[in-house]
Computed example of a mutant assay.
Amino acid sequence: MSKFIPNSTAKPYYTAEEIQVWLVSHIAELLKVNPDEISITEPLDSYGLDSVQGMLLAAQTGKLLGFQLSPLVLWHYPTIELLSQRLAEELQASESETFEI
């Protein structure tokens, strides 16, 4: 998974599919479940993510992608599929350092 380590000299770019893989792996790790138990089309709240885990996930995802990510994004894009598509669009379209909803 070394391709997910951001290059400090350039803003990283990931496809929606790469972000999905990373999110599935990370959510499974947070919840201490097998990644096979995580569906990209199920609402994140169906997995019982609490607010602390949501904040941690947003912070770690933002660090990966190179911009600040509000935990509220998890409610605006409630599935891994929707979230990863939106994040990939943001990476492609924005030069800003802050993710705005």
Rank of each mutant, 00 (worst) to 15 (best):
M1C: 09
M1S: 14
S2E: 11
S2G: 12
S2Y: 06
I5R: 10
I5C: 06
I5K: 09
P6Y: 02
S8G: 07
T9Y: 13
A10V: 11
K11D: 01
K11N: 05
P12G: 04
Y13F: 14
T15Q: 11
T15R: 10
A16L: 07
A16E: 12
A16T: 07
E18Y: 04
E18T: 05
E18S: 08
I19E: 02
I19H: 03
Q20I: 06
V21G: 04
W22A: 10
L23F: 02
V24A: 02
S25R: 12
H26T: 14
I27W: 01
A28F: 03
L30R: 05
L30P: 06
L31Q: 01
L31Y: 00
K32V: 08
K32T: 08
V33A: 05
V33M: 12
N34R: 10
N34A: 10
P35N: 11
P35D: 09
E37T: 11
S39N: 07
S39K: 03
I40M: 13
I40R: 14
I40C: 14
T41I: 12
L44T: 01
L44F: 00
L44R: 01
S46L: 13
Y47H: 01
G48H: 02
G48Q: 01
L49S: 00
D50H: 06
S51L: 00
Q53I: 00
G54Q: 11
M55T: 09
L56C: 07
L57M: 00
A59W: 01
Q60W: 04
G62R: 01
G62T: 02
G62I: 00
L64W: 05
Q68M: 13
Q68T: 15
L69S: 07
S70N: 14
S70Q: 10
S70A: 14
P71A: 12
P71C: 11
P71V: 05
L72Y: 09
L72W: 03
V73S: 00
L74T: 02
L74M: 10
L74Y: 03
L74R: 01
W75S: 08
Y77Q: 12
T79I: 11
T79N: 10
T79A: 11
E81A: 15
E81I: 04
L82Y: 08
L82T: 14
Q85W: 06
Q85Y: 11
Q85A: 15
Q85V: 15
L87S: 06
A88L: 09
E89K: 13
E89Y: 13
E89R: 13
E90Q: 11
Q92K: 15
Q92W: 07
S94G: 05
S94N: 06
S94L: 03
S96T: 14
S96P: 03
E97P: 02
T98A: 07
T98P: 00
E100V: 15
